[in-house]
């Protein structure tokens, strides 16, 4: 009897293709994919979405999200997406990039796309390391963090400080929304989805550039178990990369 009334309350969103991912156990890319997929379904965007993917572990995103995609050269996703959006302004355009892609080789592209206020959304997955190539130091690597190219730990005197992208992007004129979320616990995942929704809405309303940074774990390259990796996000990453909304022009009355 009770079986008859049973309701499926959680399932894979339609925009996420039913296929095993190539990600390591405990990698947060899967959660980010699901959040994006859920929003594309809920906001009824899947049919008119053009996704621009990057280089990194998320390079195969087109295998996992059931939307049209353009693969950009390393770091150039915001430049490619600019062209895509200007050629097809009626479509929903977003890029999905990691920290090695966006904050290092693609720094120029993201800064200028944000400054021009292109009507697109950026999903930025920050796991403080180059994941796909084997765990080299990234611009976001924390001070003291050991990677294959900083075996003694990142040193501020010689390698500089980790870049806080959300704060930098929030300071640029064309940006409508910039926020940082985290994927380490259920509460933060829910908040991250709200940030993504706001960023997507900024594009749909035509208010400007939406940017969401998602703090993520990379257990393999951090040489930790997935559970330890999630604890590291709480204890080391969030204190340096504070969560929250850094710019939201819908709260400020908009830009002309």
């Amino acid at each position: 009897m009770s079986e008859m009334n049973e309701k499926l309350v959680f399932d894979k969103p339609e925009s996420v293709i039913d296929r095993a991912t190539h990600y390591c156990p405990g990698c947060h890319h899967g959660i980010a994919h699901r959040l994006v997929g859920e929003l594309l379904d809920e906001m009824n965007l899947a049919e008119k979405t053009l996704m621009t993917t990057s280089i990194g572990c998320s390079v195969f995103l087109y295998n996992y999200l059931n939307v049209d995609a353009v693969e950009a050269p390393h770091g150039r996703a915001p430049a490619v997406a600019t062209g895509v959006k200007r050629a097809r302004p009626d479509h929903f355009v977003f890029t999905y990039q990691g920290d090695g892609d966006l904050a290092s080789i693609g720094m120029a592209e993201i800064m200028h796309a944000a400054n021009r206020g292109e009507k697109m959304s950026v999903v930025f997955v920050n796991n403080t390391v180059y994941g796909m190539t084997g765990g080299q130091m990234a611009p976001t690597t924390l001070i003291g963090q050991k990677t294959t190219t900083s075996p003694a730990g990142r040193c501020q005197a010689t390698q500089g400080s980790p870049i806080r992208m959300s704060e930098i992007i929030a300071s640029l004129g064309g940006v409508a929304y910039a926020a940082r979320g985290s994927l380490d616990c259920v509460k933060n995942i829910r908040a991250a989805k709200k940030h993504l929704r706001k960023a997507f809405e900024c594009q749909i309303n035509g208010t400007g550039f939406g940017f969401v940074e998602l703090l993520s774990g990379c257990p393999t390259n951090w040489k930790m178990t997935p559970i330890q990796a999630n604890e590291r996000i709480q204890t080391e990453m969030i204190p340096y990369f504070p969560l929250g909304v850094f710019k939201d022009i819908s709260e400020e009355g908009g830009i002309c």
Partner: peptide, 21 residues
Amino acid sequence: IGCASCAMICPDVAIKVYKTP
């Protein structure tokens, strides 16, 4: 209790949650 926390955090979307009202 059907809270779906496990499904929310599963990176591989491998968990389905059923609830009976």
